[in-house]
């Protein structure tokens, strides 16, 4: 067994100054370059140029059109899917109801949670605030229930913009 040699405690004085200098420099560097990055996510949309788009094949379901009009402030004035209007009331917002309707539509075709082949065309007023477009896309493209993500309709395109 090795026996430790006792009593050899020589205090070594290290000069910490230079190390602390460097360490503080590093600290300042990292603090300065620190940037809080907020979590961001995407909606992926494929939109080929309308001009070279081929004619809709006859077997394809015609696209649903979601009409969104804006009031003078750019806020949402009305929301219509085809001819069916959705409005805010005590039972929920217009977008919640739109989502409910879409869930109904998609469930008729396949099981719950299946992404539909259906396409939705967004026809928005020029002055509508972009926030409402994202809300509409959120309502159309899916929902989260019990932490699980279900897809609804993911094929989305815009009608050509028309300046008033």
């Amino acid at each position: 067994m090795k026996i430790r040699k006792p009593g050899r405690s020589q205090k070594i004085d290290l000069d910490m100054t230079s190390m602390i200098d460097i360490v503080f420099q590093l600290l300042i560097f990292f603090i300065m370059t620190f940037k809080i990055v907020l979590p961001e996510g995407d909606f992926n949309v494929r939109m080929p140029t309308p001009s070279n788009q081929t004619e809709t094949p006859p077997d394809q379901i015609p696209a649903l059109t979601l009409h969104m009009t804006a009031d003078a402030d750019g806020l949402l004035a009305s929301l219509k899917l085809g001819e069916r209007p959705f409005t805010d009331d005590a039972n929920g917002s217009a977008f919640d109801k739109l989502r409910g309707h879409i869930i109904g539509l998609v469930n008729d075709e396949g099981g719950p949670g299946t992404a539909s082949e259906q396409e939705v065309e967004l026809d928005c007023d020029y002055d509508l605030q972009y926030q409402h477009v994202i809300e509409a896309i959120t309502a159309i493209s899916g929902y989260i229930k019990n932490g699980q993500r279900y897809k609804l309709i993911e094929r989305i395109r815009f009608s050509p913009a028309k300046e008033k």
């Binding site: 996510g41 995407d42 909606f43 992926n44 949309v45 939109m47 140029t49 309308p50 804006a70 007023d125």
Partner: peptide
């Protein structure tokens, strides 16, 4: 304004880009 965003998308379509990611927080 949505119309302006669409113009931006159209500008990219003119340059023959076709995959888009609309970003949200």
């Amino acid at each position: 304004r949505t119309g302006k965003v669409q113009e931006m998308i159209e500008a990219s379509q003119e340059a023959e880009f076709e995959t888009f990611a609309l970003r949200g927080q």
